[in-house]
Design a protein around this nucleic acid. Structure first.
Length: 666
DNA sequence: GCGATCAGGT
DNA sequence: CACACCTGATCGC
C-alpha cells in the first residue's frame, strides 16, 4: 500500500495522485494516471466544493488521462478544470494565486519522477534499460505465442484475458489484434472513442476469439467454460477456453528469471506483466540519475521502511558519504558513457554540460533564482509547516537522517487506506488507460499519442548491437521450464536454435505440454510480416501501455495443439538466446528500433515529435539546466521571485498553457 | 442515500 | 508478494 500521501516537501502547495485530507488545500493537482488508487478523493464532494470556490485550481495530467477521466460522469465536474500536459514536454505552470512566485514543472520531470519508469527514449542512457524493455517485449511475445497456439486450433478455441485493472493492457490488446486480425472483446470501449489506434482493435461484439471482457463472477464462469460476457458456445458448438492472467512478476520471481508464461491450471496461464518498474529497472534508473536520496512509497507488508531504504541507499549518492556531495551532473554522465553524448536525445544532453554545478543551493544569495518554489508566506498561508512535517510526504533533503525520519513518518501515515473510488463500469465510459494517460478536454490529436512502429521488424531485434543487451541475464524466459510444484510451465531453453516441445512441465492437467522454443532463425523464417511486428501504438503515457520496443515474434507453429501434448510453441528467450537474437548484425539504419539514433526512436515519439504546448513558452536551455541540476541534487526546484520574473519572464507567465491547437475542442 | 472504512476476495 | 481492483458489511451523516 502506498504511503505517499500526495505531497512532496519541496512542493507543499501541490498534490500528486492524492486528493483527500491535506491535499484539499493544494493549489494545483496532478494525476499521473487513471488507476483508482491514484485517484483517492478526486471525486469527493469536499474537493468538488473546493473546486467551486477556488477557480484557479486546476488538475494537470496527460491528454490521455484527461480523456479517460472525463469519460466517467462522476469526474465530469473536472472538465473545465483539467489541463493536459504532453509527456516529455517541459511545461511551465504558473500558480497564479501566488502573489510572489511561480513554479515550473517540466513534463519530463513529472513523467520520470512520478511514474518512475524509464522511458524508452532514455534507454540508451541507461545501461540495462534495454533489458527491462526486452522483458516486457518477451512478455508480450509469450502471450502472443500462447494465444496463437490456441486460437489457431479452431474457431471455437478462444482466449480470455483476465485483466484486473481497468486500464493498462491496451498495448496487449492492440498487439494481439494486430497479430491475429481479431478484435478483442471488451465490455466498453467508449473511453477510447478518441483513440482510434486502440479503438480499432477492440469490439463489443462477443463473437471473437479473444476476450478481455470482465464480470464480477468471471472466475466462476470460467470454471464452467463460460466467458465473462456469458458466451459459452458458437454456432451451438461449445467453446474451448483458456485464460491468461497478466499478473505481476515480483522480485523473487524475476530474480529467478522466471519464465513469462506459467501454466497454473488445466486451462489457465499466468503471464508476467507489470505496470510498475521492476527492481532491476529501478536500479538502472537510479544508477542513471544517481539521486541524493530515494524515498520508497510502498513498503511491503513483511518488511520495513528501514529495510527498503537499506536496499535503495547504496544506489544513492547519500550512501557515498555522510555529507552529501553534489557532483556536477555533466561529469556523472560523461563518466558513464561518453558515446552517448553524440547520440543522445534532447534532454539527455541536459546533463552533458560539463559545467560544474556550484553548490548554489547551499548559498541562497548566490542564486539567481530563489530556491524556494513558493514564497514563505504562501506556504504559511496554505500549508502550515506542521502539516508538511507530519504528512509523511516525500522529501528530497540531502541528509540521511532526515530521510530516515521521513520514512518513519511515511510508514505511519499509511493508516489511510487507499481505495478505489470508481467502479470499473463507471470508468467504462471513459476509462483511463494506465499507460496512456492524458486527454485534453479538447479532442487530442491521437497521432501524438499513438505511433505505430511499422518499420520495426524482428530483424531489427536480431541486429541490435550487443551493447544494448547488456542486461540479458535479466530477461525472463518466455516459458517456464521448471515446475514449482504448483504450476506447469512452458519451458524455454537457452538454446535459441531449437524448437521443441517440452513435456517437462506438464504434470497434471491433461498433460498438455506446453511449449516451444523459437530460435532466432525460426523467427526469421516463416513469419508473416505481420507476425513479426509488435504493434505498438506510440503511447507515451505510462498509463496506457507498457512500451514495447521491438518485435520479436516467432511463430512457428501456428497451429500447435496445446492439448495434444505434442507440443506447443514455446518461445525461448533465455539470456543467451536473447543476446544472440538481439545482438545480431547489420540492421538497416532505418530499421533499428532501439539503438537507433534519436531520429528513429520508435518508442518515444514524444521525445522528439510532440510539439511544445502552444502558448506555453518553452523553457530555455538555461532554465532546464537549472531544473535538472536541482533535480539531481535533490534541491527544491526553482523559485523565482515575482519581481525578477516580471522582468525576465513576464512573457512566460502565461498561466496555464493550453494546447488548443493540438486538442481542438470537441 | 451517500460516503468512508474495513474485511475479504480474485 | 503485491497490485488493482471488486464485493459486502458496517458506520456516520
Amino acid at each position: 500500500m502506498s504511503c505517499f500521501e500526495g505531497q512532496m516537501a519541496e512542493y507543499p502547495t501541490i498534490s500528486i495522485d492524492r486528493f483527500d485530507r491535506e491535499n484539499l488545500r493544494a493549489r494545483a493537482y496532478f494525476l499521473s494516471h487513471c488507476h483508482k488508487d491514484h485517484m483517492k478523493g478526486l471525486r469527493a464532494p469536499t474537493l468538488k466544493r473546493r473546486l467551486e470556490c477556488s477557480l484557479k485550481v486546476y488538475l494537470y495530467c496527460s491528454p490521455v488521462t484527461k480523456e479517460l477521466l472525463l469519460t466517467s460522469p462522476r469526474y465530469r465536474f473536472w472538465e473545465k478544470r483539467i489541463i493536459s500536459i504532453e509527456i516529455e514536454t517541459p511545461t511551465q505552470i504558473s500558480l497564479v494565486d501566488e502573489a510572489s512566485g511561480e513554479v515550473f514543472i517540466s513534463g519530463q520531470q513529472w513523467d520520470r519522477l512520478v511514474h518512475g519508469r524509464l522511458q524508452i527514449g532514455k534507454r540508451r542512457s541507461c545501461p540495462n534499460g534495454a533489458s527491462a524493455l526486452r522483458g516486457q517485449e518477451e512478455c508480450l511475445h509469450g502471450i502472443l505465442e500462447l494465444v496463437r497456439s490456441w486460437i489457431t486450433r479452431s474457431p471455437y478455441h478462444v482466449v480470455w484475458l483476465s485483466c484486473k485493472a481497468a486500464y493498462g493492457y491496451e498495448y496487449l490488446f492492440t498487439n494481439l489484434s494486430e497479430e491475429f486480425g481479431v478484435q478483442v472483446h471488451v465490455n466498453k470501449l467508449d473511453m477510447f472513442r478518441n483513440m482510434p489506434d486502440i479503438l480499432h482493435h477492440l469490439t463489443t461484439d462477443r463473437d471473437t476469439q479473444i476476450h478481455a471482457c470482465r464480470h464480477p463472477k468471471a472466475e466462476e464462469y470460467f470454471q464452467w467454460n463460460k466467458l465473462p460476457c456469458g458466451v459459452t458456445s458458437k454456432n451451438r458448438i461449445p467453446l474451448h477456453t483458456i485464460s491468461i492472467k497478466p499478473s505481476t512478476m515480483w522480485f523473487g520471481e524475476r530474480a529467478r528469471k522466471t519464465n513469462v508464461i506459467v501454466r497454473t491450471g488445466e486451462s489457465s496461464y499466468r503471464a508476467c506483466f507489470s505496470f510498475h518498474s521492476s527492481y532491476s529497472e529501478i536500479k538502472d534508473f537510479l544508477s542513471y540519475i544517481y539521486p541524493v536520496n530515494v524515498y520508497p512509497n510502498v513498503i511491503p507488508l513483511g518488511t520495513t521502511m528501514g529495510k527498503v531504504q537499506e536496499i535503495l541507499k547504496p544506489l544513492c549518492r547519500s550512501s557515498q558519504s555522510t555529507e552529501p556531495k553534489y557532483k556536477p551532473l555533466g561529469k556523472l554522465k560523461r563518466a558513464r558513457t561518453i558515446h552517448l553524448d553524440s547520440e543522445e536525445d534532447d534532454d539527455s544532453d541536459l546533463f552533458d554540460d560539463p559545467l560544474p554545478v556550484p553548490l548554489r543551493h547551499k548559498i541562497p544569495n548566490q542564486q539567481t533564482l530563489h530556491p524556494e518554489v513558493f514564497p514563505t508566506t504562501a506556504i504559511s498561508q496554505n500549508q502550515p509547516e506542521k502539516q508538511t512535517e507530519s504528512t509523511g510526504c516525500f522529501r528530497a533533503e540531502s541528509t540521511p537522517t532526515s530521510l530516515w525520519a521521513d520514512f518513519i513518518d511515511c510508514a505511519e501515515s499509511n493508516s489511510e487506506s487507499e481505495e478505489s473510488e470508481i467502479p470499473a463500469s463507471a470508468q467504462g465510459d471513459m476509462g483511463p488507460v494506465p499507460q496512456l494517460q492524458k486527454a485534453d478536454g479538447e479532442v487530442p490529436q491521437w497521432e501524438v499519442f499513438f505511433k505505430r512502429s511499422a518499420d520495426l521488424t524482428d530483424d531489427c531485434l536480431e541486429n541490435l548491437p550487443s551493447s544494448t543487451e547488456a542486461g540479458g541475464s535479466q530477461s525472463p524466459k518466455l516459458f517456464s521450464d521448471s515446475s514449482d510444484g504448483e504450476s506447469t510451465h512452458i519451458s524455454s531453453q537457452t538454446s535459441s536454435q531449437s524448437t521443441h516441445i517440452s513435456e517437462q512441465g506438464s504434470q497434471g492437467w491433461d498433460s498438455q505440454s506446453d511449449t516451444v522454443l523459437l530460435s532466432s532463425q525460426e523467427r526469421n523464417g516463416g513469419m508473416t510480416s505481420s507476425s513479426r511486428r509488435v504493434y505498438r501504438p506510440g503511447i507515451n503515457d505510462n498509463t496506457l501501455a507498457p512500451q514495447m520496443e521491438q518485435n520479436v515474434l516467432c511463430p512457428k507453429d501456428t497451429y500447435s495443439d496445446l492439448k495434444s501434448r505434442d507440443q506447443d510453441v514455446s518461445i525461448g528467450s533465455s539470456a543467451g538466446e536473447t543476446t544472440a537474437l538481439s545482438s545480431g548484425k547489420h540492421v538497416p539504419q532505418e530499421k533499428r528500433p532501439l539503438t537507433l539514433s534519436s531520429s528513429t526512436d520508435s518508442q518515444s515519439s514524444s521525445d522528439f515529435e510532440i510539439p511544445a504546448t502552444p502558448e506555453a513558452e518553452l523553457p530555455t536551455r538555461e532554465h532546464l539546466q537549472y531544473f535538472y541540476e536541482k533535480l539531481a541534487t535533490g534541491e527544491r526546484i526553482v523559485v523565482e521571485k515575482r519581481k525578477s520574473s516580471l522582468h525576465s519572464r513576464a512573457t512566460t507567465k502565461k498561466p496555464i498553457p493550453r494546447d488548443n491547437s493540438q486538442n481542438p475542442n470537441r
